[in-house]
Simulated scan of single mutants.
Amino acid sequence: MSPKPPVWAYSLPTALLLMAPFDILASLAMDIYLPIVPAMPGILGTSPAIVQLTLSIYMVMLGLGQIIFGPVSDRFGRRPVLVSGAILFAAASFCLAASSTAVPFIALRFLQAVGASAAMVATFATVRDVYADRPESVVIYSLFSSMLAFVPALGPIAGALLADSFGWRSIFVVLGILAVLATLQAQLRWHETRPRRATLSRRSFLPVLRSLAFWTYTLGFSAAMGTFFVFFSTAPSVLIDRAGYSELEFSLAFATAAVVMIMTTRFAKRFVARWGTSGSLARGMAMLLLGAGLLSIGQVFGNPSFWTFIVPMWVMAIGIVFTGSVTANGALEEFGDIAGSAVALYFCVQSLIVSIGGTLAVIWLRGDTAWPLATFSSIMAVVVLIAQGWLHDRDRLRT
């Protein structure tokens, strides 16, 4: 059997239009929901801690589900995993729109996350299959980051407008409709890219877990994504509850951080070319530390506001882009023959660190202050820089 996958004949723009909706929907299911988070305890008749669980469980299952679907996609293919996950996501979204109590709502968020995780791992495994050894790899990861930056920019605004005009249930109806449309397009145009040798591979997760490069770059990705997770977990309380913003004002302020990400992403290819993968990661961590310092100063000497909470996040948003542009290639470079499993582990580890570490930061520290964000980001950035130092020392000894 040939180890080469079928040729992915689409141009880069066409491929992005085909693949991006699934990655965007996985993120949109988080961000479009944010403006109604403060109101959900009353809607569901539960506590704010349970509503926080609906955010956290989504992140946990987004990662854990990929441990299952990564190897499944290596064995049975990317296409069936993608289509099945997208159908589950759509069905769970429609059912969420019909729910009205906490327990079914949490269970359906769990199923929505399982569907999103299957679609995500199939999408990124396809990217790895097709573009790993092509110069478009940096471009496509940067473009994915750029498009995903639109989600936190527009998602909360769209959620606020939908909730104001049609009620909170319309948010989940829209997610379901978008998932159905993306699935129909995939049914017609998405063909299999899995290398045939993957069906014969008996390799486990162990080679991935033993890789210092995998851990260094996966921790970097976790630091970047976790920073954004803690930001959107605390931003509604900081800006709506304490600073007195309306839902639309909150959404517009929240969107400015994503706009900074979009603007930075425009130059991501230039950054990577100049600094390399390792240099881009180091600079990303430095920006997270700088942003955490500014948040701490604002928390101690100021009141919750756009200038003390959102502007420091602009600095951190730049670091998120620096980091996200290089971590996938850095973590997965050695594992082309088991790309599905490696991608699954990459996202699983990231999701667990983000959901558990980020949630603990929000719960243990005051969730209506800047401390959870400043603490999580600074600790993770320091850990990544230490791991990167070990990786450099190891590589130097080998040469």
Rank of each mutant, 00 (worst) to 15 (best):
V382L: 12
S84I: 03
V151M: 08
M61Y: 04
D129W: 03
R210T: 15
R396Y: 11
F229C: 07
A122T: 05
Q350V: 12
G389T: 15
A182R: 11
G330K: 07
P312W: 03
D164G: 15
S280G: 09
M61I: 15
V315G: 09
A235S: 15
W275H: 15
V138C: 06
V272A: 05
A344D: 06
R274W: 03
T234Y: 06
G167P: 02
G367R: 04
R242F: 13
P38F: 00
I36L: 11
R128W: 01
L108E: 00
S56C: 00
A98L: 05
A255L: 01
G302W: 06
V127T: 03
V311A: 10
T308V: 13
A282Y: 09
T399Q: 03
T199A: 13
A344M: 01
W371I: 15
G244D: 01
D241N: 15
A107E: 06
V121Q: 10
A257C: 05
V259E: 11
R79E: 02
G167H: 08
A107V: 14
A39M: 10
L161T: 07
Y141C: 08
L162A: 09
Y33A: 14
M316K: 11
V260S: 02
A153C: 13
G319Q: 02
A119H: 07
I379C: 09
K4W: 00
R109A: 01
L28P: 14
S204F: 04
A118F: 07
A160S: 12
G85T: 04
T308G: 08
S351N: 07
S251Y: 01
L154Q: 12
R194S: 09
D164F: 11
Y10N: 02
K4N: 00
P304V: 15
T183K: 10
G324S: 05
V300A: 04
V81G: 12
L373T: 01
C348P: 13
D74N: 00
A26Q: 12
L143S: 06
A15I: 14
A92I: 12
F229G: 07
K269Y: 09
I67T: 02
T216G: 08
G389P: 14
R396E: 14
S99W: 04
G65H: 02
T375P: 06
A223N: 13
A182V: 02
I68Y: 09
F254Q: 13
L82K: 01
G42P: 02
P312N: 13
L345F: 07
E136K: 12
T126V: 15
T46I: 07
A86P: 04
R109N: 05
F322I: 01
Q388G: 15
A387E: 07
R203C: 08
F124T: 15
N329W: 06
V7G: 05
V321P: 06
A90W: 06
P156A: 11
A160I: 05
L53Y: 08
P6Q: 08
V362L: 02
T256G: 05
A149Q: 11
A273L: 09
L28W: 07
F124C: 02
G324H: 08
G367Y: 01
F301P: 00
A223C: 13
G115P: 13
A243L: 08
I386G: 04
L88W: 02
T369C: 06
L289A: 14
R194H: 08
